[in-house]
Amino acid sequence: SNREKAKQAFKELLRDKAVPSNASWEQAMKMVVTDPRYSALPKLSEKKQAFNAYKAQRE
């Protein structure tokens, strides 16, 4: 689905920018907000969900 693709793109973005798994949401956003993939997930709640999944995978 498109939403799954968007989630993957967002997680790839976090990986590409080397966002550490112990980063806070605010720290992570400063690192990725300028990338076009930041807008892949329109809802903030979805971004946070993908971010938390990313962190869980990295730990």
Rank of each mutant, 00 (worst) to 15 (best):
K17P: 03
A18D: 14
K30Y: 00
K43I: 01
N2P: 03
F51W: 02
K7I: 12
M31T: 07
S1K: 15
Q49F: 02
A18C: 13
A6I: 10
S21N: 04
P20A: 04
K5Q: 12
V32K: 10
L44C: 06
Y38L: 03
V33L: 11
K43L: 09
K5C: 11
K7L: 14
N52H: 12
P20R: 02
E46I: 00
M29Y: 13
K11W: 14
S1D: 06
K30M: 08
Q57C: 10
S21T: 14
S45P: 06
E12D: 10
V19L: 02
N2I: 04
D35G: 01
F51L: 04
Q8K: 11
M29V: 11
E26A: 07
Q49E: 15
Q57F: 03
Q49D: 14
L13V: 03
Y54H: 00
Y38K: 09
K55D: 08
A9F: 03
A9G: 08
N22V: 04
V32Y: 02
K7N: 12
D16F: 00
N52T: 09
Y38V: 06
E12F: 01
P20W: 00
P42S: 11
V32M: 10
A28E: 05
S24W: 00
V33Q: 14
K5T: 13
M31K: 08
V19Q: 06
L41Y: 07
R15G: 09
L44S: 10
K48W: 03
A28R: 02
S45W: 05
L44E: 15
V19Y: 00
P20Q: 05
Q27D: 09
T34A: 14
A53Y: 03
S45T: 09
A28Q: 07
N2D: 14
T34K: 10
S1M: 06
K43F: 02
R58L: 15
Q49Y: 03
K11Y: 10
F51K: 06
R15S: 09
A9N: 08
A53G: 08
A40S: 13
Q8L: 11
A6H: 09
A40D: 01
V32W: 01
S39H: 14
K48D: 02
R3M: 14
A40F: 14
K55C: 15
Y38P: 05
R15I: 12
E4M: 05
F10V: 03
F10Y: 08
L41H: 01
E4T: 05
Q8S: 06
Q57W: 11
S1L: 14
F10K: 07
W25Q: 06
Y38H: 05
W25F: 15
K47T: 04
R58H: 13
F10I: 08
E12V: 01
P36H: 05
A6G: 12
N2C: 03
K5G: 10
S24R: 01
F10W: 00
A53V: 08
W25I: 08
Q57K: 08
V32Q: 05
A28K: 03
Y54K: 01
P36K: 07
R58C: 15
D35C: 00
A56G: 09
E12K: 04
A28L: 01
D35F: 00
S39T: 11
S24G: 06
R3S: 14
T34V: 05
K11A: 15
A50D: 07
S39W: 08
L13T: 04
A6L: 03
M29D: 11
L41M: 10
L44K: 08
M29S: 11
K30V: 05
A6Q: 13
Q27A: 11
N52E: 15
R37M: 01
K5V: 12
F10A: 11
